[in-house]
Design a protein around this nucleic acid. Structure first.
Length: 629
DNA sequence: ACGATCACG
DNA sequence: ACGTACGTGATCGTG
């Protein structure tokens, strides 16, 4: 047995590394010594748990004074047996470690998850801000430095340096560092000691501010999302391989066109700007740091294309701008999507993206590796890569204008609430209210934009820029909006006043405290609305599992749920899921739209199958679905 | 490491 | 008094 010592917050701690089976007697004695909650952590070869090469290397157990670092290759059974003992554990970022031991040791998520406390969840409830936003962040090191010991070592940073010393990189280090490397072992042990100490500080803090109930819900939700992550989403591999090849060929062809204008790298904004200027194009927009702006918004008009990439016929298209746009898009789709899908799939051709339950400041959920909440929606080609299991059909249900409804409920806007109760199209209702029965589609679009401005806290200038509408017209529209819905402005002002004179935060109906930036108090309304909409979807996920429908779920996407069901039951299942999503919030109905997509996710975006291949439908509604009362 | 860009709700 | 667009993840170029 090797033992290392270290100083933590002024006292000496021990890190024990069993080497032979005999050493385990002392480990068992440690487990039996009566700590109420033990800390647990793992070291693995990488973050992608379901890729074929992923391995568990070390498993660490600890309390505030000692850590036990066990090699998974030698003591896997012992680690699993310890975790199966019915006692509570604390982990930092439990979702990851729970999936690791579920996959590699057969310790079920459903068994260990419900008796796990996650210090990352506690930290998010106390302050969700990233370091860049003036918060502590949610990583173990900065949290330990604030709450445990200002001299807490940055174990991630320290290991990166060690990787480099050994000729390894951040990418190869986690798998390649010798398993008995002293720094690696020491930091592995320290991580659980810090996690345990952190739990003993954060647990009581969360209790003190009355967030135990929310904490319990978030821990539960995190397990449900981990179940979705474990389930994964089936990938149509031959389709993705062809798609990737086609996209890369496209990108190459357009790069060659750009090359004819002297642009050797279409991703270099400096090169593109210089070449366009040399062609006589006037480039007037600048980025925040003063560089010439050549983004999509600048290039599309030069290429005589609308935001939807259709010919405008207002000028001769600049062929360089056109080529840059097309090659960048093709390359982005090929690398960020198609290639990423292939790199991350498991042995059964499934993708298991990380689904973060408490990610943004507003607690919105996020999906990464790969980013499945950000797939192109204007076109079905990327989403077509994801297919239902054999005999199943992809289904989905989304909330109808959930953020506007939440705003109507929270700000208590009588006219809006009535329109929602009567099943009216909210933006058309507003247009009629202001413009009379002769309102046009343009009016509806304008007031829809104003509504978004209210939700985001935007002003006339931004709105005019976003919609392309005339600034004076937008100013008049905002004034009219405030006249018919004065409660919204009043509500926003009240939130800002409270934040200005009380604590600089807003509190959501679920009890979540959201800190505000000093110079961006206007974001208060958006934070409450966005966070509340997230809480509604989170509650829906919990309700769907409670109703026994959890097996169908695949992904949450902000205001919708993607799921699958045996084809014969698809309509019925999505109706039930849709019903479970619905609720009454402060007297406002929160309603959902259930949809049956088809064999793939892309079938909800206009892909229609013909002889096994997708063809573009002549005119496709974004979705076609089953109506439900 | 950071800014610019682009994908989503 | 006025006005402030919100939240993410990923890649690439630049220094």
């Amino acid at each position: 047995m090797r033992t290392l010592t270290h100083s933590v917050a002024g006292s000496t701690v021990g890190i024990h590394i069993p080497e032979r089976r005999d050493d385990l007697d002392r480990f068992r004695a440690f487990l039996a010594q009566g700590d109420k909650v033990l800390a647990f952590d793992t070291e693995t070869t990488g973050l992608d748990v379901y890729t074929p090469e992923h391995r568990l290397r070390l498993a660490q157990f600890g309390n505030s004074r000692e850590a036990w670092v066990l090699r998974a290759d030698a003591f896997g059974e012992e680690i699993a047996a310890a975790l199966r003992q019915p006692r509570p554990y604390t982990m930092h970022n439990a979702q990851y470690d729970l999936l690791v031991v579920d996959r590699h040791l057969g310790v079920r998520l459903e068994d260990l998850g419900p008796r796990t406390y996650d210090t990352r969840v506690l930290a998010h409830l106390l302050d969700p801000r990233a370091p860049q936003e003036g918060g502590i962040g949610l990583a173990l090191k900065p949290l330990s430095a604030v709450y445990v010991d200002p001299d807490a070592p940055d174990t991630q940073e320290g290991l990166t340096t060690e990787f480099r010393r050994l000729g390894l990189t951040k990418a190869t280090g986690w798998a390649g560092i010798p398993i008995d490397n002293e720094l690696y072992t020491r930091y592995a042990g320290l991580d659980v000691i810090f996690a345990h100490r952190l739990f003993r500080v954060l647990g009581p803090m969360v209790r003190e501010i009355g967030l135990d109930h929310l904490s319990k819900f978030e821990h539960h939700l995190q397990i449900l999302l981990a179940i979705l992550q474990r389930r994964g989403f089936r990938l149509d591999v031959p389709y993705v391989e062809t798609l990737r090849t086609d996209l890369l060929a496209d990108a190459e062809a357009y790069k060659r066109v750009a090359g004819r204008y002297g642009v050797t790298n279409v991703n270099s904004t400096t090169q593109v700007a210089a070449a366009l200027a040399a062609m006589g194009e006037a480039l007037t927009e600048r980025t925040a740091s003063g560089a010439t702006k050549v983004d999509k918004g600048v290039l599309l008009p030069l290429a005589d294309l609308s935001l939807g990439w259709e010919r405008l016929d207002v000028r001769a298209p600049n062929l360089l701008a056109d080529a840059v746009l097309r090659s960048k898009r093709a390359e982005k789709w090929a690398t960020a999507y198609a290639s990423a899908f292939l790199d991350l799939k498991d042995a059964d051709d499934r993708l298991h993206p990380s689904i973060g339950a408490l990610q943004a400041r507003t607690a919105r959920m996020s999906i990464s590796r790969p980013p499945l909440q950000q797939l192109p929606s204007s076109d079905w080609t990327i989403r077509r890569a994801f297919v239902a299991d054999p005999g199943h059909t992809i289904i989905a249900a989304d909330y109808q204008a959930v953020e506007m409804r939440v705003l109507a409920a929270l700000a208590d806007v009588p006219r809006m609430k009535e329109a929602i109760a009567n099943g009216e199209d909210l933006h058309a209702f507003t247009a009629r209210l202001i413009e009379g029965d002769g309102f046009t589609k343009r009016h509806r679009k304008l007031y829809k934009g104003v509504g978004f401005g209210k939700v985001y806290g935007g002003g006339a200038v931004t709105l005019a820029r976003q919609t392309g509408a005339d600034l004076d017209a937008v100013k008049r529209a905002i004034a009219a909006y405030d006249r018919v819905y004065p409660e919204i402005k009043r509500y926003s002002r009240r939130l800002m006043e409270r934040a200005e004179f009380g604590r600089r935060e807003v509190v959501t109906p679920s009890g979540r405290h959201l800190p505000l930036d000093r110079d961006r108090l206007y974001a208060a309304t958006n934070y409450v609305v966005q966070s509340t909409a997230r809480d509604l979807l989170a509650q829906a996920i919990a309700d769907i599992f409670a109703a026994g429908l959890g097996d169908h779920l695949l992904l949450p996407v902000h205001d919708e749920l993607i799921a699958q069901a045996p084809t014969a039951d698809a309509e019925e299942v999505i109706r039930e899921i849709g019903r479970a999503m619905e609720s009454t919030f402060f007297g406002v109905r929160i309603e959902s739209d259930p949809d049956v997509y088809g064999p793939s996710w892309g079938h909800g975006y206009g892909c229609a199958e013909k002889k096994g291949r997708c063809v573009v439908r002549e005119s496709h509604p974004r979705k076609w679905g089953v109506r439900h009362d």
